[in-house]
């Protein structure tokens, strides 16, 4: 069948890769979006992603239930979130530096505890089959979609509505845009930021569970290729809007699929460079959209201060 599709296999493989590979980007960028709306940056989501991937895999293996693994991953992410939320709000402590420390700490813990789980295989998350109408196996496998991805797709508009139309969304925006005004409204800045960071870390942990339990579907130390870091750039690109995080995640998932798709039709001389395309794309987008003259449209006013 591979031959029958020929070059058409490339766009199909990229589309399939987009549907499979964009969920981690989506969860992490939604988590980062929530965090940044409250005025703090969490660069440590890379560590959160790894902790999530490790704990999901370990729990799924030990209990036999992948969904229990997903929940555990979220909870494990929240624990890292508590550390970040507390430490980054101490006086004179820089949130970006805390993020770097959390990457080292989180990946250290994940590799430390995850060592015994590299060999065994955990039950993967089930997939929904949307491709039964086609008799091409490539189409069928391309349209296998994880319910977790659909969950992420549903969270994006919900979060958009939450920010725009709810009281809590307003509180978060107030804390992120103008902490002094929020304080005058009687809102606890510490609590709101803590909750946002913890909830964002929960989402990032679930993104990690997707990595280890669905795609690529195994646990090893190289499972996350910097998706947690790219999320920060992705949120800038998405202008801090959850719906645009969804579109940006699809774009990045697609960019990630280019290398493997070309390799499948025999172009592998630039394999590593094509694999770097999400990073190159992120950098290009940042070069094109940032400006030294003004702060970005949509950026929370107190971000990084």
């Amino acid at each position: 069948m591979d031959q029958a599709l020929g070059w058409w296999g490339v766009p199909l493989a990229i589309a399939a890769g987009t549907l499979r590979g964009s969920a981690p980007f989506l969860f992490v960028s939604l988590g980062e979006c929530l965090t940044e709306k409250s005025g703090k940056i969490n660069l440590g989501l890379e560590g959160t992603l790894l902790i999530g991937a490790m704990s999901a895999y370990a729990i799924a293996y030990l209990t036999g239930s992948p969904w229990l693994g997903v929940i555990t991953a979220g909870v494990a992410g929240m624990m890292l979130g508590v550390i970040h939320g507390w430490l980054s709000q101490q006086p004179r402590v820089n949130d970006v530096a805390v993020g770097i420390a959390m990457i080292i700490f989180g990946s250290g813990i994940a590799f430390f505890l995850g060592k015994p789980f590299i060999q065994p295989s955990a039950p993967p998350l089930p997939a929904l089959q949307f491709g039964a109408w086609s008799n091409l196996p490539q189409v069928q496998s391309a349209l296998q979609i994880s319910p977790l991805f659909l969950l992420g797709v549903a969270i994006a508009p919900l979060m958009q509505w939450f920010f725009r139309s709810t009281r809590w969304g307003l509180y978060i925006r107030a804390v992120g845009d103008s902490p002094d005004a929020a304080k005058a409204m009687g809102i606890s800045i510490f609590k709101v930021r803590m909750l946002c960071i913890v909830a964002g870390s929960f989402l990032a942990g679930i993104g990690g569970a997707y990595l280890s339990l669905y795609y690529p579907g195994s646990w090893n130390e190289r499972i996350s290729g910097g998706q947690g870091l790219m999320a920060v750039a992705l949120v800038i690109f998405a202008r801090w809007r959850p719906m645009q995080c969804l579109y940006a995640s699809l774009l990045f998932g697609g960019a990630q699929a280019i290398g493997p798709a070309l390799q499948s039709v025999g172009i592998d001389s630039y394999y590593y460079l094509f694999n770097a395309s999400p990073y190159i794309l992120t950098l290009l987008i940042m070069i094109l959209t940032c400006s030294p003259k003004r702060t970005l449209n949509g950026a929370p006013g107190a971000l990084g201060q």
């Binding site: 101490q90 402590v93 530096a97 805390v98 420390a101 959390m102 080292i104 700490f105 990946s107 250290g108």
Partner: peptide
């Protein structure tokens, strides 16, 4: 990875000490 955990701990504590 023990060494990595140790480095992460040192980093976090040093950042806290900034305050």
């Amino acid at each position: 990875a023990t060494v990595l955990v140790f480095q992460g701990l040192v980093f976090l504590v040093v950042l806290f000490s900034e305050s």
